[in-house]
Design a binder for these strands. Structure first.
Lengths: 230, 230
DNA sequence: AAAAACACGTCACAAATGTTACACTTTGCA
DNA sequence: TGCAAAGTGTAACATTTGTGACGTGTTTTT
């Protein structure tokens, strides 16, 4: 059981996205009225169980957790790491019968703020800036989900690579992009075998679509890549 | 350009999920203060363009629209139909640089309520029930997204079928389920070729995992199916 | 009632991807 | 600095999935 800290560091809270643009007195007023606790957790501690109903918002202030999806036979299936400052499962706090999709285990010591669902509701009602922050954060998570779903709905690896590179190229505003993950991690993100991804990148290089060396890839045939992502 | 109706039917609005559990006077008070318009649209009319920034909430009251994703070459890629009463792109109303993922075209005549983003924010601040409704609706959409992403992240068709059947079996509370889509539609939902899906279903039947006849499928090896969805 | 459109089941063959294995390079850390 | 761990590139072979085609039955339209 996590221990409750006696006092909260409001100044630190103001720096996390959810409370951005609030004034310290305003935040103090909100916290005074609500059931909000700050807890410290240790490495290996379980912050949330898989399939447990989401009844509270957990916001990592420091530290990080790994999200593990375990199957009936007990093997770990899919993992995702979450680093502070970030909320856990914010998209699943409301709605009907929403549960944690993964088990959240602390990767190291850290701290988190825990706010019961009802208090979140009250809190958002009290301050419009806070409400907008919350909606923005939720929307950004949803957009990430949607982007990934879009990616996964491409059938061939070549299409996924094309879509990923075009997106990276826009974000980094250059035809030469630096991969933001290792190729192994990218293969896992795509849900394909690593050698299969390597082979496809090699072929795209041979076909003149891209120029690939290590983590840097240059787009040569932008039009052709775009035609792939139909 | 859609024409603005002179007067709104509040009683009808109270029946849509977003305004559920509100009183008529309350709703009247909210609408009086905000910029909300009701519009009528005709078959073929475009309600939202793909990649257009989402600056307003569009809620279908009657009728339905098709969502089409068109690629640079102009071909239609993926479609999804939305039926009243339902909001369009509610998950993308807030957040940074969020745009309509599809073009929304009316399938027939109908009506919709349009609320600018700023008004949505004000509206949600004014009434806690409304806020909860909004968050619940958003969360349910996010959950659907998440479920589909989970499905798409299974590599083999057999795994997808297993996961889909297990979920249907829970929802219909029976080992014998009736598919809620045609097998063609299911293949499209899975993002696989129709004959490939048929073949896999046949094989799973042969392997004793399921008993398949037409739209009805009976689960024979629940344990085995669960082991597949790792 | 006839015609058209659609869903279904199946097949042979082509293409894409996964698996396993090995050698080499880079990175991180003691 | 040097060692261990992680990441990378590549190959041969196995497996899965896609493609195109065909015939059948059922529903919808005319």
């Amino acid at each position: 059981m996590p221990e409750t800290a006696p006092k909260m560091n409001l100044a630190a809270l103001l720096k996390i996205p959810l409370f951005r643009s609030l004034t310290e007195p305003e935040l103090e007023r909100i916290f005074a009225e609500l059931k909000i606790t700050e807890t410290r957790f240790r490495k290996g501690e379980i912050l949330a169980m898989q399939d447990e109903p989401v009844t509270r918002l957990i916001i990592l202030l420091t530290g990080s957790v790994k999200g593990e999806m375990t199957d009936p036979s007990g093997k770990v299936a899919k993992v995702e790491d979450i680093h502070a400052p970030s909320p856990l499962a914010i998209l699943f706090l409301f709605g009907h019968d929403n549960r944690f999709p993964v088990q959240a285990t602390a990767l190291g010591n850290g701290t988190a703020v825990i706010i019961p669902r009802q208090s979140v509701l009250r809190m958002l009602s009290m301050n419009e800036i806070l409400l907008k922050n919350y909606l923005d954060i939720s929307a950004d998570f949803a957009a990430r989900l949607s982007r990934k779903l879009n990616l996964m709905s491409f059938r061939t690896i070549r299409q996924k690579v094309a879509a990923y590179l075009l997106e990276l190229s826009e974000k980094q505003d250059s035809y030469t992009v630096t991969l933001d993950r290792s190729k192994s991690a990218l293969a896992e993100y795509f849900g394909v075998a690593r050698p299969s991804l390597e082979r496809e990148i090699t072929r795209m290089h041979e076909d003149g679509l891209i120029f690939s060396q290590q983590k840097r890839i240059t787009i040569r045939g932008k039009q052709a890549l775009m035609r792939l992502t139909n």
